[in-house]
Design a protein around this nucleic acid. Sequence first.
DNA 1: GCCCAGGAGCATA
DNA 2: TATGCTCATGGG
Length: 243
Amino acid sequence: MKAPAVARLYEVLAARYGPQGWWPLAGRAGRLGFDGRGYHPGVYRVPGPRERFEVAAGAVLTQNTSWGNAEAALRALLAAGLLSPGALLDCSPQRLARLIRPSGYYNQKARKLRGLAVYLEGLASGRAQAPTREALLALWGLGPETADSILLYAWHRPVCVVDAFTRRLLRRLDWIEGREGYEELAALCSRGLAVEVPVYQEFHALVVRHAKEHCRAAPECRGCPLAGRLCRAASAPGLGTRP
DNA sequence: GCCCAGGAGCATA
DNA sequence: TATGCTCATGGG
């Protein structure tokens, strides 16, 4: 496991793709890292309550699901006026499940959203403290990736998010064996990065961007910024396209 | 038709 | 602890 190389990976991806400004929002067709005029790295707006809930709901809806499908569900919730904990809890589980149907697993995700809404509403009516990782993980249906996405993007807590794309990329780079647990991979990433919220946010967003453009399930190694520098997968048998 | 997509819970060995 | 099954829609 090569933590220092993670810093290099971040540099190369950032140079290729530029600032990503995550998390994506369905509400006003934007991204959290952008304001109305443009992108301001290092000046990241702290999300307001409505955006926080949209991020949290989106993190649940995109579980094992393409963002496009999750966004369709998010737009349905927005159109129904349900993008707040209170409004969502006033909606029947059946109607909620119907609205988020495009995201798949809609019965499970409806239950997850309700549990999340109960918790966040309790937070808001209390002393408005930030959610804790432990409390999020204790909710039914929230695992480490979903919890960390919420903490990092909605509450700007410096935690590394590891997803299937991250795992696949690190595996193709041959930096991991592939069976490591979530916490181990998160530790690996965080050791190589400055402990700063924008860096963690951008790193995760860049990995997803790269995984969608090049490091796909069926690799597209032509034009890959890592090929021949950090990654040798293109020359591995059965992987990628040779130049 | 098949594969894939920002996972997580649960049963079983 | 680790592996396999389940949940489900929509785009390529």
